[in-house]
Design a binder for these strands. Structure first.
Lengths: 215, 215
DNA sequence: GTTGACACAGAACAAATGTTCGATTATAAT
DNA sequence: ATTATAATCGAACATTTGTTCTGTGTCAAC
Protein backbone atom coordinates (compact mmCIF):
# COMPACT_ATOMS: atom_id res chain seq x y z
CA UNK A 1 0.00 0.00 0.00
CA UNK A 2 2.71 2.38 1.08
CA UNK A 3 4.84 1.38 -1.88
CA UNK A 4 2.02 2.11 -4.27
CA UNK A 5 1.64 5.45 -2.56
CA UNK A 6 5.34 6.18 -3.16
CA UNK A 7 5.11 5.12 -6.77
CA UNK A 8 2.10 7.28 -7.30
CA UNK A 9 3.89 10.28 -5.86
CA UNK A 10 6.79 9.71 -8.24
CA UNK A 11 4.37 9.47 -11.12
CA UNK A 12 2.75 12.72 -10.03
CA UNK A 13 6.11 14.45 -10.16
CA UNK A 14 6.86 13.12 -13.64
CA UNK A 15 3.42 14.07 -14.88
CA UNK A 16 3.66 17.52 -13.35
CA UNK A 17 6.93 18.22 -15.14
CA UNK A 18 5.86 16.80 -18.47
CA UNK A 19 2.45 18.45 -18.42
CA UNK A 20 3.88 21.83 -17.54
CA UNK A 21 6.49 21.67 -20.30
CA UNK A 22 3.98 20.48 -22.82
CA UNK A 23 1.19 22.91 -22.02
CA UNK A 24 2.81 26.01 -20.59
CA UNK A 25 0.79 25.70 -17.39
CA UNK A 26 0.66 23.13 -14.61
CA UNK A 27 -2.14 20.57 -14.30
CA UNK A 28 -5.09 20.80 -11.93
CA UNK A 29 -5.77 18.35 -9.10
CA UNK A 30 -8.42 16.69 -11.27
CA UNK A 31 -6.08 16.43 -14.27
CA UNK A 32 -3.47 14.72 -12.08
CA UNK A 33 -6.16 12.37 -10.81
CA UNK A 34 -7.28 11.51 -14.33
CA UNK A 35 -3.71 10.76 -15.39
CA UNK A 36 -3.12 8.39 -12.47
CA UNK A 37 -6.56 6.82 -12.49
CA UNK A 38 -7.38 8.31 -9.09
CA UNK A 39 -11.00 9.32 -8.92
CA UNK A 40 -10.82 11.18 -5.65
CA UNK A 41 -9.62 14.76 -5.62
CA UNK A 42 -9.00 14.48 -1.89
CA UNK A 43 -6.48 11.70 -2.42
CA UNK A 44 -4.65 13.70 -5.05
CA UNK A 45 -4.68 16.63 -2.68
CA UNK A 46 -3.36 14.35 0.02
CA UNK A 47 -0.48 13.18 -2.20
CA UNK A 48 0.34 16.76 -3.16
CA UNK A 49 0.42 17.72 0.50
CA UNK A 50 2.89 14.90 1.12
CA UNK A 51 5.08 15.98 -1.78
CA UNK A 52 4.99 19.54 -0.51
CA UNK A 53 6.10 18.43 2.93
CA UNK A 54 9.00 16.57 1.31
CA UNK A 55 10.05 19.71 -0.50
CA UNK A 56 9.44 18.15 -3.91
CA UNK A 57 6.79 20.61 -5.03
CA UNK A 58 5.65 24.03 -4.12
CA UNK A 59 1.97 24.97 -3.92
CA UNK A 60 0.27 28.31 -3.92
CA UNK A 61 -2.85 27.62 -1.87
CA UNK A 62 -6.41 27.94 -3.16
CA UNK A 63 -5.60 29.17 -6.65
CA UNK A 64 -5.99 27.18 -9.79
CA UNK A 65 -2.95 25.31 -11.11
CA UNK A 66 -0.85 26.58 -8.22
CA UNK A 67 1.56 23.62 -8.26
CA UNK A 68 5.11 23.57 -9.44
CA UNK A 69 8.10 21.28 -9.19
CA UNK A 70 11.08 22.05 -7.02
CA UNK A 71 14.12 20.54 -8.69
CA UNK A 72 17.53 21.39 -7.26
CA UNK A 73 20.50 21.45 -9.63
CA UNK A 74 24.06 20.61 -8.65
CA UNK A 75 24.63 23.77 -6.68
CA UNK A 76 23.22 23.00 -3.27
CA UNK A 77 22.84 26.65 -2.41
CA UNK A 78 20.95 27.56 -5.55
CA UNK A 79 17.63 25.80 -5.51
CA UNK A 80 15.74 26.35 -8.72
CA UNK A 81 12.37 25.08 -9.69
CA UNK A 82 12.42 22.90 -12.72
CA UNK A 83 11.78 25.04 -15.74
CA UNK A 84 12.90 28.14 -13.87
CA UNK A 85 14.88 29.90 -16.49
CA UNK A 86 16.46 33.22 -17.21
CA UNK A 87 14.98 35.02 -20.16
CA UNK A 88 17.76 36.87 -21.92
CA UNK A 89 17.27 39.38 -24.72
CA UNK A 90 18.58 37.99 -27.97
CA UNK A 91 20.01 40.66 -30.25
CA UNK A 92 20.80 38.68 -33.38
CA UNK A 93 24.30 38.27 -34.63
CA UNK A 94 27.65 39.69 -33.64
CA UNK A 95 29.91 40.48 -36.57
CA UNK A 96 33.37 41.96 -36.62
CA UNK A 97 32.58 45.03 -38.69
CA UNK A 98 30.04 46.76 -36.45
CA UNK A 99 29.55 47.58 -32.78
CA UNK A 100 26.94 45.65 -30.84
CA UNK A 101 23.44 46.99 -31.20
CA UNK A 102 22.61 47.11 -27.50
CA UNK A 103 19.76 49.55 -28.20
CA UNK A 104 17.80 46.48 -29.26
CA UNK A 105 17.79 45.21 -25.69
CA UNK A 106 14.12 45.94 -25.29
CA UNK A 107 13.25 43.91 -28.35
CA UNK A 108 11.01 40.93 -28.07
CA UNK A 109 13.30 38.06 -28.89
CA UNK A 110 14.64 36.23 -25.91
CA UNK A 111 16.44 33.04 -25.17
CA UNK A 112 15.82 30.95 -22.09
CA UNK A 113 18.52 29.13 -20.20
CA UNK A 114 18.36 27.43 -16.87
CA UNK A 115 18.88 29.98 -14.14
CA UNK A 116 21.24 27.72 -12.28
CA UNK A 117 23.82 28.06 -15.04
CA UNK A 118 24.35 31.65 -14.02
CA UNK A 119 25.89 33.32 -11.04
CA UNK A 120 24.07 35.62 -8.74
CA UNK A 121 24.03 38.64 -10.99
CA UNK A 122 21.41 38.40 -13.70
CA UNK A 123 21.31 42.08 -14.58
CA UNK A 124 21.77 43.42 -18.08
CA UNK A 125 22.40 40.12 -19.80
CA UNK A 126 22.05 39.80 -23.54
CA UNK A 127 22.83 37.17 -26.14
CA UNK A 128 24.17 37.14 -29.67
CA UNK A 129 25.10 34.54 -32.21
CA UNK A 130 28.59 34.80 -33.68
CA UNK A 131 28.65 35.14 -37.44
CA UNK A 132 31.83 34.36 -39.32
CA UNK A 133 35.27 33.31 -38.16
CA UNK A 134 36.41 36.69 -36.90
CA UNK A 135 36.16 35.60 -33.27
CA UNK A 136 38.20 32.46 -33.79
CA UNK A 137 41.09 34.05 -31.91
CA UNK A 138 38.80 34.03 -28.91
CA UNK A 139 38.29 30.31 -29.50
CA UNK A 140 34.74 31.24 -30.38
CA UNK A 141 33.43 29.83 -33.60
CA UNK A 142 30.90 30.77 -36.19
CA UNK A 143 27.46 29.92 -34.85
CA UNK A 144 28.36 29.98 -31.16
CA UNK A 145 25.96 31.76 -28.85
CA UNK A 146 27.60 34.35 -26.65
CA UNK A 147 25.98 35.78 -23.55
CA UNK A 148 27.26 39.06 -22.24
CA UNK A 149 26.55 41.43 -19.41
CA UNK A 150 26.25 45.04 -20.42
CA UNK A 151 29.05 46.89 -18.67
CA UNK A 152 31.60 49.43 -19.79
CA UNK A 153 34.46 48.20 -17.70
CA UNK A 154 35.75 44.75 -16.82
CA UNK A 155 38.31 43.40 -14.39
CA UNK A 156 41.79 42.64 -15.69
CA UNK A 157 41.78 39.34 -17.52
CA UNK A 158 38.06 39.12 -18.12
CA UNK A 159 36.81 38.51 -21.61
CA UNK A 160 34.78 41.29 -23.16
CA UNK A 161 33.26 42.35 -26.43
CA UNK A 162 35.18 45.44 -27.42
CA UNK A 163 34.69 47.86 -30.27
CA UNK A 164 38.03 49.11 -31.58
CA UNK A 165 37.48 52.58 -32.95
CA UNK A 166 40.72 52.71 -34.88
CA UNK A 167 40.11 49.39 -36.61
CA UNK A 168 36.32 49.69 -36.82
CA UNK A 169 36.09 46.20 -35.48
CA UNK A 170 34.30 44.29 -32.75
CA UNK A 171 36.36 41.60 -31.13
CA UNK A 172 36.15 39.31 -28.11
CA UNK A 173 39.31 39.43 -26.05
CA UNK A 174 40.64 39.38 -22.52
CA UNK A 175 41.18 42.93 -21.42
CA UNK A 176 44.19 44.19 -19.46
CA UNK A 177 44.54 47.84 -18.45
CA UNK A 178 48.18 48.90 -18.82
CA UNK A 179 48.55 52.59 -18.07
CA UNK A 180 47.09 54.64 -20.93
CA UNK A 181 46.88 51.58 -23.12
CA UNK A 182 44.78 48.49 -23.12
CA UNK A 183 46.15 45.10 -24.02
CA UNK A 184 43.63 42.84 -25.74
CA UNK A 185 44.76 39.29 -25.29
CA UNK A 186 43.36 36.57 -27.54
CA UNK A 187 42.19 33.46 -25.74
CA UNK A 188 44.21 31.46 -28.24
CA UNK A 189 47.73 31.64 -26.78
CA UNK A 190 49.36 31.21 -30.17
CA UNK A 191 48.07 34.60 -31.27
CA UNK A 192 49.51 38.06 -30.63
CA UNK A 193 47.79 40.59 -28.41
CA UNK A 194 46.54 43.92 -29.67
CA UNK A 195 47.59 47.16 -27.97
CA UNK A 196 45.34 50.20 -28.30
CA UNK A 197 44.92 53.55 -26.53
CA UNK A 198 42.31 53.17 -23.82
CA UNK A 199 40.06 55.80 -25.34
CA UNK A 200 39.83 53.86 -28.59
CA UNK A 201 38.61 50.72 -26.88
CA UNK A 202 34.89 50.68 -26.13
CA UNK A 203 33.92 47.80 -23.90
CA UNK A 204 30.39 46.77 -24.81
CA UNK A 205 29.84 43.85 -22.56
CA UNK A 206 31.53 41.19 -20.51
CA UNK A 207 31.35 37.66 -21.84
CA UNK A 208 29.73 35.47 -19.21
CA UNK A 209 28.84 32.39 -21.21
CA UNK A 210 29.52 30.70 -24.50
CA UNK A 211 27.24 28.03 -25.90
CA UNK A 212 28.67 25.94 -28.69
CA UNK A 213 26.53 23.67 -30.72
CA UNK A 214 28.44 20.96 -32.46
CA UNK A 215 25.88 19.72 -34.97
CA UNK B 1 -8.46 55.14 -27.89
CA UNK B 2 -7.01 52.74 -30.42
CA UNK B 3 -3.49 53.66 -29.37
CA UNK B 4 -4.31 52.98 -25.74
CA UNK B 5 -5.77 49.70 -26.81
CA UNK B 6 -2.50 48.83 -28.59
CA UNK B 7 -0.42 49.85 -25.62
CA UNK B 8 -2.55 47.80 -23.31
CA UNK B 9 -2.11 44.75 -25.47
CA UNK B 10 1.66 45.18 -25.39
CA UNK B 11 1.53 45.50 -21.62
CA UNK B 12 -0.53 42.33 -21.44
CA UNK B 13 2.15 40.45 -23.38
CA UNK B 14 4.92 41.73 -21.12
CA UNK B 15 2.96 40.93 -18.00
CA UNK B 16 2.06 37.47 -19.29
CA UNK B 17 5.72 36.62 -19.86
CA UNK B 18 6.97 38.05 -16.61
CA UNK B 19 4.19 36.55 -14.51
CA UNK B 20 4.66 33.10 -16.02
CA UNK B 21 8.41 33.14 -15.43
CA UNK B 22 8.02 34.41 -11.91
CA UNK B 23 5.22 32.09 -10.81
CA UNK B 24 5.51 28.94 -12.90
CA UNK B 25 1.95 29.37 -14.18
CA UNK B 26 0.25 31.98 -16.31
CA UNK B 27 -2.05 34.67 -14.89
CA UNK B 28 -5.84 34.60 -14.93
CA UNK B 29 -8.02 37.08 -16.81
CA UNK B 30 -8.69 38.87 -13.52
CA UNK B 31 -5.01 39.00 -12.58
CA UNK B 32 -4.24 40.59 -15.94
CA UNK B 33 -7.05 43.08 -15.34
CA UNK B 34 -5.72 43.98 -11.90
CA UNK B 35 -2.24 44.55 -13.28
CA UNK B 36 -3.48 46.89 -16.01
CA UNK B 37 -6.12 48.61 -13.90
CA UNK B 38 -8.92 47.21 -16.06
CA UNK B 39 -11.93 46.37 -13.95
CA UNK B 40 -13.88 44.51 -16.58
CA UNK B 41 -13.06 40.89 -17.27
CA UNK B 42 -14.83 41.11 -20.59
CA UNK B 43 -12.42 43.79 -21.81
CA UNK B 44 -9.43 41.70 -20.80
CA UNK B 45 -11.02 38.79 -22.57
CA UNK B 46 -11.57 41.02 -25.57
CA UNK B 47 -7.90 42.04 -25.63
CA UNK B 48 -6.80 38.43 -25.29
CA UNK B 49 -8.98 37.48 -28.21
CA UNK B 50 -7.32 40.21 -30.28
CA UNK B 51 -3.85 39.00 -29.31
CA UNK B 52 -4.82 35.46 -30.18
CA UNK B 53 -6.05 36.56 -33.59
CA UNK B 54 -2.69 38.29 -34.13
CA UNK B 55 -0.86 35.08 -33.27
CA UNK B 56 0.83 36.64 -30.25
CA UNK B 57 -0.66 34.29 -27.69
CA UNK B 58 -2.29 30.93 -27.65
CA UNK B 59 -5.37 30.17 -25.54
CA UNK B 60 -6.85 26.90 -24.40
CA UNK B 61 -10.54 27.76 -24.11
CA UNK B 62 -12.58 27.60 -20.91
CA UNK B 63 -9.84 26.33 -18.63
CA UNK B 64 -8.12 28.29 -15.96
CA UNK B 65 -4.84 30.02 -16.85
CA UNK B 66 -5.02 28.66 -20.36
CA UNK B 67 -2.95 31.49 -21.86
CA UNK B 68 0.59 31.38 -23.12
CA UNK B 69 2.87 33.54 -25.18
CA UNK B 70 3.89 32.65 -28.69
CA UNK B 71 7.41 33.94 -29.20
CA UNK B 72 9.36 32.84 -32.27
CA UNK B 73 13.15 32.68 -32.04
CA UNK B 74 15.54 33.39 -34.84
CA UNK B 75 14.88 30.18 -36.72
CA UNK B 76 11.79 30.91 -38.77
CA UNK B 77 10.95 27.24 -39.14
CA UNK B 78 11.21 26.41 -35.48
CA UNK B 79 8.54 28.32 -33.62
CA UNK B 80 8.88 27.91 -29.91
CA UNK B 81 6.77 29.36 -27.19
CA UNK B 82 8.66 31.64 -24.90
CA UNK B 83 9.94 29.59 -22.03
CA UNK B 84 9.63 26.38 -24.02
CA UNK B 85 12.69 24.50 -22.99
CA UNK B 86 14.20 21.09 -23.29
CA UNK B 87 14.63 19.30 -20.01
CA UNK B 88 17.80 17.27 -20.15
CA UNK B 89 18.89 14.74 -17.52
CA UNK B 90 21.91 16.00 -15.64
CA UNK B 91 24.24 13.21 -14.55
CA UNK B 92 26.75 15.09 -12.43
CA UNK B 93 30.37 15.32 -13.43
CA UNK B 94 32.50 13.78 -16.13
CA UNK B 95 35.98 12.81 -15.00
CA UNK B 96 38.76 11.17 -16.93
CA UNK B 97 39.14 8.11 -14.76
CA UNK B 98 35.68 6.55 -15.14
CA UNK B 99 33.17 5.83 -17.88
CA UNK B 100 30.02 7.91 -17.99
CA UNK B 101 27.29 6.73 -15.70
CA UNK B 102 24.50 6.70 -18.24
CA UNK B 103 22.43 4.40 -16.02
CA UNK B 104 21.61 7.54 -14.07
CA UNK B 105 19.61 8.87 -17.00
CA UNK B 106 16.37 8.27 -15.20
CA UNK B 107 17.52 10.30 -12.24
CA UNK B 108 15.69 13.39 -11.19
CA UNK B 109 18.14 16.16 -11.86
CA UNK B 110 17.62 17.99 -15.10
CA UNK B 111 18.79 21.11 -16.77
CA UNK B 112 16.62 23.28 -18.96
CA UNK B 113 17.82 24.99 -22.07
CA UNK B 114 15.85 26.77 -24.73
CA UNK B 115 14.60 24.25 -27.22
CA UNK B 116 15.55 26.44 -30.14
CA UNK B 117 19.25 25.92 -29.35
CA UNK B 118 18.92 22.33 -30.43
CA UNK B 119 18.42 20.66 -33.74
CA UNK B 120 15.49 18.49 -34.58
CA UNK B 121 16.61 15.44 -32.69
CA UNK B 122 16.00 15.75 -28.95
CA UNK B 123 16.25 12.07 -28.12
CA UNK B 124 18.57 10.64 -25.51
CA UNK B 125 20.25 13.88 -24.49
CA UNK B 126 22.10 14.12 -21.22
CA UNK B 127 24.36 16.67 -19.58
CA UNK B 128 27.49 16.57 -17.46
CA UNK B 129 29.83 19.08 -15.93
CA UNK B 130 33.51 18.63 -16.72
CA UNK B 131 35.70 18.21 -13.65
CA UNK B 132 39.42 18.80 -13.92
CA UNK B 133 41.62 19.72 -16.86
CA UNK B 134 41.65 16.31 -18.48
CA UNK B 135 39.42 17.48 -21.33
CA UNK B 136 41.54 20.50 -22.12
CA UNK B 137 42.79 18.81 -25.28
CA UNK B 138 39.20 18.99 -26.49
CA UNK B 139 39.29 22.72 -25.72
CA UNK B 140 36.85 21.96 -22.98
CA UNK B 141 37.68 23.37 -19.61
CA UNK B 142 37.06 22.51 -16.02
CA UNK B 143 33.51 23.54 -15.16
CA UNK B 144 32.13 23.49 -18.71
CA UNK B 145 28.76 21.87 -19.21
CA UNK B 146 28.71 19.25 -21.94
CA UNK B 147 25.53 17.97 -23.52
CA UNK B 148 25.67 14.66 -25.30
CA UNK B 149 23.35 12.38 -27.18
CA UNK B 150 23.48 8.78 -26.12
CA UNK B 151 24.69 6.84 -29.13
CA UNK B 152 27.30 4.16 -29.65
CA UNK B 153 28.52 5.31 -33.01
CA UNK B 154 29.24 8.69 -34.52
CA UNK B 155 30.03 9.96 -38.00
CA UNK B 156 33.67 10.55 -38.93
CA UNK B 157 34.87 13.80 -37.48
CA UNK B 158 32.17 14.19 -34.84
CA UNK B 159 33.19 14.76 -31.28
CA UNK B 160 32.25 12.07 -28.81
CA UNK B 161 32.83 11.02 -25.25
CA UNK B 162 34.81 7.81 -25.50
CA UNK B 163 35.92 5.36 -22.84
CA UNK B 164 39.34 3.93 -23.67
CA UNK B 165 39.48 0.46 -22.20
CA UNK B 166 43.26 0.15 -22.47
CA UNK B 167 43.90 3.44 -20.72
CA UNK B 168 40.90 3.33 -18.37
CA UNK B 169 40.11 6.86 -19.38
CA UNK B 170 37.19 8.89 -20.63
CA UNK B 171 38.08 11.51 -23.15
CA UNK B 172 36.32 13.87 -25.54
CA UNK B 173 37.70 13.67 -29.05
CA UNK B 174 36.79 13.72 -32.69
CA UNK B 175 36.40 10.17 -33.87
CA UNK B 176 37.69 8.80 -37.18
CA UNK B 177 37.22 5.16 -38.19
CA UNK B 178 40.35 3.91 -39.95
CA UNK B 179 40.07 0.21 -40.73
CA UNK B 180 40.37 -1.84 -37.53
CA UNK B 181 41.62 1.23 -35.65
CA UNK B 182 40.05 4.41 -34.49
CA UNK B 183 41.86 7.71 -34.54
CA UNK B 184 40.90 10.04 -31.73
CA UNK B 185 41.76 13.54 -32.80
CA UNK B 186 42.05 16.29 -30.16
CA UNK B 187 40.22 19.49 -31.03
CA UNK B 188 43.40 21.31 -30.12
CA UNK B 189 45.45 21.05 -33.34
CA UNK B 190 48.75 21.29 -31.47
CA UNK B 191 48.13 17.93 -29.82
CA UNK B 192 48.75 14.45 -31.13
CA UNK B 193 45.95 12.05 -31.96
CA UNK B 194 45.47 8.73 -30.18
CA UNK B 195 45.19 5.51 -32.12
CA UNK B 196 43.41 2.55 -30.55
CA UNK B 197 41.87 -0.73 -31.70
CA UNK B 198 38.21 -0.21 -32.46
CA UNK B 199 37.12 -2.76 -29.88
CA UNK B 200 38.87 -0.84 -27.12
CA UNK B 201 37.04 2.39 -27.87
CA UNK B 202 33.57 2.61 -26.35
CA UNK B 203 31.65 5.57 -27.63
CA UNK B 204 29.33 6.76 -24.87
CA UNK B 205 27.72 9.76 -26.45
CA UNK B 206 28.06 12.36 -29.14
CA UNK B 207 28.85 15.87 -27.99
CA UNK B 208 26.12 18.18 -29.24
CA UNK B 209 26.69 21.24 -27.10
CA UNK B 210 29.22 22.84 -24.82
CA UNK B 211 28.30 25.60 -22.41
CA UNK B 212 31.18 27.57 -20.96
CA UNK B 213 30.70 29.95 -18.11
CA UNK B 214 33.39 32.55 -17.82
CA UNK B 215 32.80 33.89 -14.33
C1' DG C 1 -10.00 -10.23 18.27
C1' DT C 2 -9.23 -5.39 18.87
C1' DT C 3 -7.26 -1.02 17.96
C1' DG C 4 -5.00 2.53 15.47
C1' DA C 5 -2.98 4.31 11.38
C1' DC C 6 -3.01 4.83 6.63
C1' DA C 7 -4.92 4.90 2.05
C1' DC C 8 -8.79 5.84 -0.42
C1' DA C 9 -13.50 7.33 -1.90
C1' DG C 10 -17.46 10.28 -2.58
C1' DA C 11 -19.94 14.25 -1.72
C1' DA C 12 -20.47 18.87 -0.69
C1' DC C 13 -19.06 23.39 -0.55
C1' DA C 14 -16.75 27.75 -1.43
C1' DA C 15 -13.98 30.21 -4.27
C1' DA C 16 -11.83 30.93 -8.53
C1' DT C 17 -12.25 31.53 -13.25
C1' DG C 18 -13.81 32.19 -18.21
C1' DT C 19 -17.54 33.57 -21.08
C1' DT C 20 -21.62 35.94 -22.50
C1' DC C 21 -24.88 39.62 -22.67
C1' DG C 22 -26.72 44.11 -22.70
C1' DA C 23 -25.59 48.76 -22.10
C1' DT C 24 -22.77 53.03 -22.29
C1' DT C 25 -19.21 56.05 -23.98
C1' DA C 26 -15.87 57.77 -27.21
C1' DT C 27 -14.29 58.28 -31.72
C1' DA C 28 -14.35 58.28 -36.65
C1' DA C 29 -16.79 58.55 -40.87
C1' DT C 30 -20.45 60.46 -43.54
C1' DA D 1 -25.68 66.53 -36.86
C1' DT D 2 -26.05 61.81 -37.54
C1' DT D 3 -24.57 57.21 -37.89
C1' DA D 4 -21.51 53.43 -37.42
C1' DT D 5 -17.82 51.34 -35.17
C1' DA D 6 -14.71 50.45 -31.52
C1' DA D 7 -13.65 50.46 -26.80
C1' DT D 8 -15.25 49.84 -22.38
C1' DC D 9 -18.10 48.49 -18.42
C1' DG D 10 -20.82 45.84 -15.09
C1' DA D 11 -23.47 42.03 -14.10
C1' DA D 12 -24.74 37.46 -14.46
C1' DC D 13 -23.93 32.86 -15.34
C1' DA D 14 -21.72 28.42 -16.06
C1' DT D 15 -17.89 25.88 -15.34
C1' DT D 16 -13.65 24.90 -13.26
C1' DT D 17 -11.05 24.18 -9.36
C1' DG D 18 -9.29 23.44 -4.52
C1' DT D 19 -10.50 22.20 0.05
C1' DT D 20 -12.96 20.02 3.68
C1' DC D 21 -15.63 16.52 5.80
C1' DT D 22 -17.26 12.02 6.69
C1' DG D 23 -17.03 7.31 5.93
C1' DT D 24 -14.98 2.75 4.45
C1' DG D 25 -11.51 -0.72 3.74
C1' DT D 26 -6.96 -2.62 4.54
C1' DC D 27 -3.10 -3.70 7.16
C1' DA D 28 0.04 -3.87 11.03
C1' DA D 29 0.72 -3.93 15.87
C1' DC D 30 -0.75 -5.48 20.20
Amino acid sequence: MKQQSQERQERILQFLGAFTRENGYPPTVREIGRELGIESTSLVSFYLTQLEKQGRIRRDPAISRGIRLVSPWTLPEAHTAQGEVVSIPYLGTIVAGAPLNVEALSGEETIEINRALFGRNLDALFALTVKGDSMIDALIHDGDLVILRQQERVENGEMAAVWLVGREETTLKRVYYEGRQIRLQPANPTMEPIYAPADEVHIQGKVVMVVRRLS
